[in-house]
């Protein structure tokens, strides 16, 4: 057992799909598609059916935009978490927030995992996860303020920085009371990083997985894919899946995605190539 989320335990070779469900009117990819409660619940049902292990519920888009205070963020996510908990008792629920106050309320409503995309910006967050008995994602952003974009950021060694920061945050979370087997680290593609940084993090992801902490990657339709292939949002799935395969090969545990079915196929294929998963039905030459 290397990872525990809620009441589920996972082996080191398991590859988990975390489906993005935005309770926002303005996120870059879905542009408010799940802003309505019914549409959001429909998406949860669909992604669970497609094989999602984790539902990641967020109330604020990552990019700069309309300021959303903690009260408004809670309005968007807490009741929804409770509803998903009720309708899907087996699925792992993740709350995508950087705010301790929001995490606390969401965990009380049934969230199992606190996905902090902003690198521990709120120093109370790990304590809130600990008190709730929740898992925590520790992310590398280079110390930026939430909802800012990188501007001329440079690193001597982006991977070394990502490892140093996320491992330090992970140890800090454990010291704050989060269960060691419930802490993940995330290099945070595109957060505090230009495209070259995100490509290097992908290329050298094995150095992060070698730390022994389970690694979460969030690649889905991001700008580093778009800039690498010169493709707009909406045409980045193939590139996303290629990066997904590479991260899987390097041993990342959790994949935060928009497209669940396609990601599941890629992860299953990589797992089979690695010898961790038998083929679904192999009869060729075997009759």
């Amino acid at each position: 057992m290397t990872l525990r989320l809620g009441r589920h335990e996972y082996a080191a070779t398991d590859r988990l799909v975390m489906a993005i469900v935005n309770r926002t009117p303005d996120s870059f990819y879905d542009r408010g598609a799940t802003w309505g409660i019914e549409a959001a619940l429909e998406r949860v049902a669909r992604v669970v059916q497609e094989g999602a292990d984790i539902i990641d519920i967020g109330g604020i888009k990552a990019a700069p935009g309309e300021p959303i205070d903690a009260a408004e963020e809670k309005d968007r996510v807490v009741d929804f978490v409770a509803r998903v908990r009720e309708d899907f008792p087996d699925v792992v629920i993740s709350i995508d927030t950087w705010r301790a106050e929001v995490a606390e309320a969401a965990c009380a409503a049934g969230a199992d995992l606190v996905n902090d995309a902003w690198g521990g910006y709120d120093r109370e967050l790990a304590g809130a996860a600990a008190r709730a008995g929740a898992a925590l994602v520790c992310t590398h952003t280079g110390g930026v303020t939430p909802r800012t974009r990188p501007h001329r950021v440079e690193y001597d060694d982006v991977v070394a920085s990502a490892i140093a920061d996320t491992v330090a945050e992970a140890e800090r979370a454990v010291a704050a009371g989060v269960a060691r087997e419930s802490v993940l680290i995330d290099p945070a593609h595109d957060f505090g990083k230009n495209t070259f940084h995100s490509l290097e993090v992908t290329r050298r992801l094995g150095e992060m997985t070698a730390t022994g902490w389970p690694v979460l990657v969030s690649l889905s339709n991001k700008d580093f894919v778009g800039e690498t292939l010169d493709l707009p949002v909406g045409e980045r799935l193939t590139g996303t899946l290629a990066a997904t395969a590479l991260c899987a090969w390097h041993g990342a545990a959790v994949y935060r995605v928009h497209e669940v079915a396609q990601t599941r196929q890629v992860l299953d294929l990589v797992s089979s190539v690695q010898g961790h998963r038998p083929p679904a039905r192999a009869v060729r030459g075997l009759a």
Partner: peptide, 10 residues
């Protein structure tokens, strides 16, 4: 000044 790198100023 950046805590992340020692490159010459861009």
């Amino acid at each position: 000044p950046s805590p992340h790198h020692s490159n010459a100023p861009a």
